[in-house]
Write a protein that binds this DNA or RNA. Structure first.
Lengths: 131, 131
DNA sequence: TGAATATATGAACAGTTGTTCACATGATGA
DNA sequence: TCATCATGTGAACAACTGTTCATATATTCA
């Protein structure tokens, strides 16, 4: 990522391209920003909540321990589809699994997940109320 | 969405398809699940956090008020690209804008956003520590 | 052992999404 | 008014993603 804006020098003209309108604010904002790795991982993390099948699975497991077949029944998605999504959630440590016989029981693997979904619901309820 | 599982009757066989392994657990989990509209809106909401450009924008605006050009400089994405993403965020009430002359100044429009991102960072830091 | 069952997974495909390019709009100031 | 500038947006395209289908793996039980 090349930085076209670092060479500000003293000519802080009021132009947007090549130089910057508010160089000091930009520099300050940049310095406050988490590093690129963190930002990337954050977006990957939230991506997991950004699909209605997965969020159904997460909400379903928030309070219940269920096998794949039951999850499939609850969220109304094929066993295969659920299994693919569970793999994603597993790989990202959002859920964990315990094998009992033929069945795999899934639970949440993170105490933050319920919190995050709750805040999201608050946002949506407030937005609904504000209309 | 047709429900293949509601017709449980008394034949609660231990089979996954057509009937359900643990019908009572499934019914309970279903009843605890928020309605489909809420789940859909939740996933749409979190989708906004699931892109590294947008999360950079949100984190940038978390504490600063900046014009489009400056945001573009901070996050390292073209003005047009930023503008498209800002529209999405605006339409979903995550940011709001104030016009001053030619410039549009953006700020966060929701006190939950910082909280959500903070929890996400906690998750990632803990996951990093746990490796 | 062999049939039945639960889960996992690779490949393929359709639908979605982020970026870029070109241009429109609207404001400023000479 | 005209040139310049900041921002907004439609169209197009490449890359990504979620689902389905077919099949593999692994466990149970007769």
């Amino acid at each position: 990522m090349t930085d076209n804006y670092s060479n500000l020098e003293e000519n802080n003209v009021d132009r947007c391209e090549e130089t910057v309108t508010h160089g000091d604010k930009v520099e300050r904002a940049k310095s406050l920003l988490p590093d690129d790795d963190m930002l990337f991982e954050l977006s990957e993390f939230f991506k997991l909540f950004g699909d209605s099948t997965r969020i159904k699975i997460l909400e379903t497991l928030n309070g219940s321990e269920l096998c794949v077949c039951d999850i499939s029944a609850v969220v109304g998605v094929s066993q295969s589809g659920v299994s693919h999504q569970l793999r994603l959630l597993r790989q990202n440590r959002l859920v964990k699994t315990t094998k009992v016989g033929k069945e795999s029981y899934y639970t949440l693997d993170d105490e933050h997940i319920g919190d995050i979904i709750k805040i999201g619901m608050n946002h949506i309820n407030e937005r609904r109320a504000g209309l």
